[in-house]
Design a protein around this nucleic acid. Structure first.
Length: 139
DNA sequence: GCCAACGTTGGC
DNA sequence: GCCAACGTTGGC
């Protein structure tokens, strides 16, 4: 199983809306960047993704699960880009802010920090574990 | 195929 | 609101 991070501006699409959508999940479409699209293509059913709020909050707020692997994005007329379907999994007990991620030397290599504009990125297992641990600090 | 101009994202 | 970083477009 692989781990990922998905970015969304909460005033466009937030984790709360994702949660309301419940078990049927949501089509994650609109990605128009090759690097992000390539990451979407690598996703498999059952993979887990951190849900990150960009611009407002700048923090990881929850986890979603991939329930359908990449298919042609229905909103892309040229049929070049892909979408996946993700389902709400859980909210983090404590959100993990970008500020705190930057403070951790073991997380400095993440694309979240190095490539601030990338909206879909892989998270290695070690980093996934660290971030999960950080989210449980104030249980 | 290069690169200047322009557009977009997202942190600050 | 500004701007750095980076992706895309279009003229040559």
């Amino acid at each position: 199983m692989k781990y990922w991070l998905l970015k969304s501006e909460p005033n466009v699409w937030s984790i709360h809306q994702q949660k309301k959508n419940g078990i049927k999940g949501v089509v994650w479409d609109g990605v128009r960047n090759y690097q992000a699209a390539n990451n979407l293509k690598k996703m498999k059913k059952g993979d887990l993704c951190f849900f990150y709020h960009s611009n407002i909050g700048k923090e990881i707020v929850g986890i979603v699960e991939v329930i359908k692997k990449a298919f042609i994005d229905p909103t892309d007329n040229k049929k070049k880009f892909v979408a996946v379907i993700v389902r709400f999994k859980k909210m983090l007990k404590k959100t993990v802010t970008l500020e705190n991620i930057k403070k951790n030397k073991d997380l400095m290599h993440l694309s979240l920090i190095k490539q601030s504009r990338l909206s879909v990125m892989p998270i290695d297992t070690k980093s996934w574990k660290i971030l999960n641990k950080m989210s449980n600090i104030n249980k």
